[in-house]
């Protein structure tokens, strides 16, 4: 029993990380049809700069952590918005080329991060409470999982509120439905593009800081490894669906944890098999609108 609780909650924590990356990917794809390979780099740079700030403030205090998270989100948003503005926008409606540009950016930025911060992982010091465990139903659960879950839920609620109750949220939702119609009504949908990139980048940057707490270090490849699972999550959840991304994040991460524990560390393979199964049975994903 305690093992199952442990696996469930750690799975939820990992799912929270996946969601922070996948939410941005899914929104960007839904509105613009861009598969963003540079999303992992937004995450990595958010993590690196967030921790640089935290280290200069003070080591291991709560407010340094909050500062790191805020900085990570802001940096991620700025870098993402700049990417959209300078690179993606020039290739409007040429989806393959847009993917290629983000691939180039991902390769170049990872190399640059390695040049600046080195190839070895940089270890981070977080508040000591996060390193301890809490006992729930006999399972000793690392405290940082609770924070991951809390932050991901807050981000999900914030994005949903933004999409439902603001004017720009309305434009974005309408754009996902039918971009041509939004443009025809005289609304400059390109501003919404930059905004969506910024939101996705902020979630990813925040996710970067949290991922480095989860793993205990930051490295230039931290974004790339999470990105692949985020891709799988978005396909399983249905491209362009935020709710699908949230549900699929949890399902994928929990499945991964259980397979790792009970099937001898085959979590990654189980996830890929799940992807194949979903595609065979339901090619548009769990909550996708169309294939």
């Amino acid at each position: 029993m305690s093992t199952i609780v442990l696996l469930l909650i750690t799975g939820l924590g990992l799912g929270a990380l996946y969601f922070l990356v996948a939410s941005g990917l899914s929104l960007i794809y839904g509105l613009m049809g861009v598969l963003n390979f540079a999303h992992g780099s937004f995450l990595t740079i958010g993590a690196f700069i967030g921790w640089e700030v935290a280290r200069r403030l003070s080591d291991g205090s709560w407010w340094a952590l909050v500062a790191a998270m805020l900085t990570g989100a802001v940096v991620g948003a700025l870098v993402a918005a700049a990417t959209e503005f300078f690179l993606i926008r020039r290739l409007y409606n040429r989806h393959i080329e847009q993917v290629l540009v983000t691939v180039g950016l991902a390769l170049a930025s990872v190399a640059l991060f390695e040049g600046i911060w080195g190839t070895d992982p940089t270890y981070v010091t977080s508040p000591s409470w996060l390193g301890q465990t809490t006992e729930i139903l006999g399972a000793r659960i690392p405290n940082n999982r609770f924070m991951l879950i809390l932050v991901a839920v807050l981000v999900l609620v914030a994005i949903v509120l933004f999409l439902k109750f603001t004017r720009y949220g309305l434009i974005i939702r309408a754009g996902v439905e039918n971009r041509l119609m939004v443009t025809a009504l005289g609304i400059d949908v390109r501003r919404a593009f930059t905004l969506v990139f910024a939101i996705g980048g902020a979630a990813a940057g925040l996710g970067g800081v949290l991922a480095s707490i989860y793993y205990g270090y930051v490295s230039a490849h931290i974004g790339g490894s999470l990105l692949i699972f985020a891709f799988i999550v978005t396909v399983i959840g249905g491209l362009g669906s935020l709710a699908g991304a949230a549900v699929a994040s949890v399902l994928v991460a929990v499945l991964q944890q259980f397979a790792n524990f009970y099937l001898g560390g085959t979590g990654d393979l189980a996830v890929v098999l799940a992807l194949a199964a979903v595609l065979l049975l339901r090619p548009r994903g769990l909550m996708g609108a169309k294939a």
Binding site: L100, V101, G104, L105, L107, A108, S109, V110, A111
Partner: peptide, 11 residues
């Protein structure tokens, strides 16, 4: 960083 130069060239 060769990959940085190649990535930039690619973009």
């Amino acid at each position: 960083q060769p990959l940085f130069i190649l990535g930039t060239l690619f973009i």
